[in-house]
Computed example of a mutant assay.
Amino acid sequence: MKVIYRITYPNGKIYIGKDLTDSINYFGSASSELIARDFTREERRHFTITREILWESETASDAEVARREIEFIRKCRSNDPSIGYNRWPPPGQRSEAD
């Protein structure tokens, strides 16, 4: 199963990612440095995040999953630094498919 997921951090910011293996223990590749800037040392002592599957497919190609990931990043605006931790694609950047 291939999935697109949303991770929500305690500050409400989100990260959208894809997992081509449906690993229950995969939480993406968001920048630890960016996330750490948003939390005090005390806030980091007890930290809960939520991982929600937004889309899944048993038959999609890896390329389709990548396209869907970008769609969800744009739809959820997780590439806007005030909303999320995705840094690609930059807000306003158009893809070849647009």
Rank of each mutant, 00 (worst) to 15 (best):
D22Q: 09
D98I: 01
T59V: 10
I7F: 03
P89Q: 02
I35H: 00
I53S: 07
Q93V: 14
A97H: 13
H46L: 08
E64D: 14
C76Y: 15
V3T: 15
S29V: 03
K75L: 14
R44N: 09
R41P: 00
K2N: 11
R44G: 10
F39W: 10
T48F: 12
S61V: 07
A30H: 13
S32V: 10
D22S: 14
R94T: 06
V3F: 01
I83H: 03
E56T: 07
I7C: 02
R94I: 02
R87M: 09
E64L: 11
N79E: 02
A97Q: 14
T21N: 15
I53A: 09
I24W: 12
G92C: 03
D22W: 12
G84R: 01
A97L: 10
R87P: 00
R68F: 07
P10G: 09
T8E: 11
G28A: 04
V65H: 01
I73G: 03
S32H: 14
K18R: 15
P90G: 03
Y15R: 01
D62Q: 14
Y15G: 03
E56R: 11
T8C: 05
I83A: 04
R87D: 04
I14H: 02
L34C: 07
A66E: 14
A63W: 00
I35S: 02
S23L: 13
F72E: 09
L20W: 05
R44E: 05
E56L: 11
A30N: 06
N11R: 10
A66Q: 12
P89S: 05
A30I: 04
Y5P: 02
R45I: 15
E64V: 08
T48Y: 11
A36L: 10
Y15L: 08
E96W: 11
S61P: 07
T59M: 02
A66D: 12
F39V: 07
P10A: 08
M1Q: 08
L54G: 07
T50R: 11
A97M: 04
S29K: 15
Y26L: 00
R44C: 11
A60E: 00
N25T: 15
P81E: 03
S57H: 08
S95H: 04
L20M: 13
S23W: 00
I73R: 00
A97I: 07
P91M: 06
T40W: 08
W55F: 11
E69C: 04
P91Y: 03
D80T: 03
P10S: 08
G84P: 05
P91G: 02
S78H: 01
I73Q: 01
R87Y: 10
D38Y: 06
E96K: 10
F39P: 05
I73M: 04
N11E: 05
T59R: 12
I14K: 07
G12I: 07
T59H: 13
G84N: 02
R41L: 15
Y26C: 06
N11P: 06
I7L: 15
K75C: 02
I7R: 01
G28R: 04
A63Q: 13
